[in-house]
Amino acid sequence: MAKKVWVERNKDGSWDAFGDDGAHIKFGHGQGLFDPGDLMKLALAGCAALSSQVAVESTLGEGKGATISVDGTYDDELKGFASFKEQIELDASSAGLHNEDVEKFKERVQKHIERSCMVMHTYEHATPVSEEITVKQ
């Protein structure tokens, strides 16, 4: 069963997002807060990080990980992002990899992300969103 998530407004104008398993983040508009566009980029980066973790740790060692940044091109006509660019940095300086090993490592990381990152798969295809509004009286 999928995790239930919801958001609630705070008195200061920020929002809290919750998961039924205890997960929590704060977001909104303003200094020190992730806005919804940031959260979309973070979802993509986080998915790539989790998807690539096995490949990265098997090559670089337990506890090692990628640094992943995502930038998006916003389109005013679309009123949304037209594209995302993901930059994955892997520090293999202490692993002693040769050039052919580096290329194989990059391919392996990419295959893990392409196979497992459901956020990337979702963003690559049009995803319908339905909405239901309930007003309690």
Rank of each mutant, 00 (worst) to 15 (best):
K11V: 14
K11I: 08
K11S: 15
K11G: 12
G13Q: 11
S14N: 07
S14Y: 10
W15R: 06
W15V: 07
D16N: 15
D16S: 13
A17Q: 11
F18Q: 06
F18P: 05
G19M: 12
D20Y: 07
D20I: 00
D21Q: 12
G22H: 08
G22N: 10
H24F: 09
H24M: 13
I25M: 10
K26H: 08
G28P: 08
G28E: 09
G28D: 07
H29V: 13
H29P: 00
G30A: 12
Q31M: 12
Q31Y: 09
Q31H: 11
G32L: 01
F34H: 12
F34Q: 08
F34R: 02
F34V: 05
D35I: 00
P36D: 03
P36R: 01
P36G: 02
P36N: 03
P36Q: 00
G37Q: 07
G37E: 06
D38K: 07
D38M: 11
D38W: 01
D38T: 03
L39M: 14
L39R: 01
M40V: 15
K41I: 04
L42G: 14
A43N: 10
A43V: 07
L44P: 04
L44N: 09
A45P: 06
G46V: 10
G46C: 09
G46W: 01
C47G: 09
C47R: 03
A48T: 06
A48N: 14
A49F: 09
L50P: 00
S51D: 11
S51M: 01
S51Y: 05
S51Q: 04
S52N: 08
S52I: 08
S52A: 15
Q53E: 14
Q53P: 03
Q53A: 13
Q53F: 11
V54N: 12
A55W: 07
A55L: 05
V56C: 01
V56H: 01
V56I: 14
V56W: 01
V56T: 04
E57Y: 08
E57V: 07
E57A: 05
S58P: 00
S58Y: 10
T59A: 13
T59G: 02
L60M: 07
G61V: 00
G61P: 02
G61A: 10
G61L: 06
G61M: 09
G61Q: 06
E62M: 03
E62G: 09
G63N: 05
G63M: 05
G63E: 09
K64C: 08
K64F: 04
A66T: 10
A66S: 15
A66W: 03
A66N: 15
T67R: 14
T67Y: 07
T67H: 12
I68S: 04
I68Q: 09
I68A: 10
I68G: 02
I68K: 03
S69G: 14
S69P: 02
V70D: 07
V70G: 05
V70F: 04
D71N: 11
D71W: 00
D71F: 06
D71S: 13
D71G: 13
G72L: 01
G72A: 14
